[in-house]
């Protein structure tokens, strides 16, 4: 028993010291510095827009997808996560419905649908689509909004991020930002 207590003391003290050090001091220091240097990013990259009547409104996070279904908007990835196998019957049914939806939604578009528009993401709230998926929607958006296609393309390019050093990751288009810009809010 005495030997057990001799080991217990450093064990308890160690846990307490490092709970303070790694749990409180470390977390606190990172939070302090984050809030000081990157206040917007540390708090969820919230986009605040000024509406036409002059009021300011928090419209969303640039990192979390919002639902868009109207033809004048750039449409993002299907929401939710399936966890289904890509070769399963269950997913096949869902994907075929999505293909049908796109063809009915935009009947004049004969191009192949980019795959990120018919497959759901892992997070279920992917804020991005591929540049190809944005390009696929340019004609429709321009027509519905009676805008020049080049203007739509310019807006998309503005909110496209390349891969890192041209090697790591894939280029992406931020859907919410493009739509805010299309509405003249950004």
């Amino acid at each position: 028993m005495k030997r057990f207590l001799k080991i217990l003391r450093p064990a308890v003290s160690f846990l307490l010291i490092f709970t303070v050090l790694c749990g409180i001091v470390y977390t606190g220091a990172v939070t302090g510095i984050a809030q000081l240097i990157f206040p917007n990013k540390a708090n969820g990259s919230i986009i605040t827009v000024t509406l036409k009547d002059g009021t300011e409104k928090e419209i969303g996070s640039k990192l979390i997808a919002q639902e868009f279904t109207k033809p004048e908007y750039l449409i993002g990835r299907p929401s939710g996560t399936s966890n289904l196998s890509p070769t399963s019957k269950e997913l096949k049914k869902i994907v075929e419905e999505r293909i049908k939806w796109w063809h009915e939604f935009d009947p004049n578009n004969t191009a192949d649908i980019p795959s990120d528009l018919i497959y759901a993401s892992g997070s279920g709230v992917d804020p991005n689509i591929s540049p190809a998926a944005a390009k696929y929607q340019v004609m429709r958006i321009a027509k519905v909004r009676s805008m020049d296609e080049d203007t739509v393309r310019e807006i998309i390019d503005k909110y496209t991020t390349g891969s890192f050093l041209g090697v790591f990751g894939e280029p992406s288009v931020n859907v919410l930002k493009v739509n805010l810009a299309l509405d003249g809010l950004l």
């Binding site: 980019p114 795959s115 497959y119 993401s121 689509i129 591929s130 991020t161 894939e170």
Partner: peptide, 18 residues
Amino acid sequence: YEGVAASGNMEGKEVING
């Protein structure tokens, strides 16, 4: 799928990762 651009398996993957 017919009418879908050929790509790798994108189900459950984020666009930035591909």
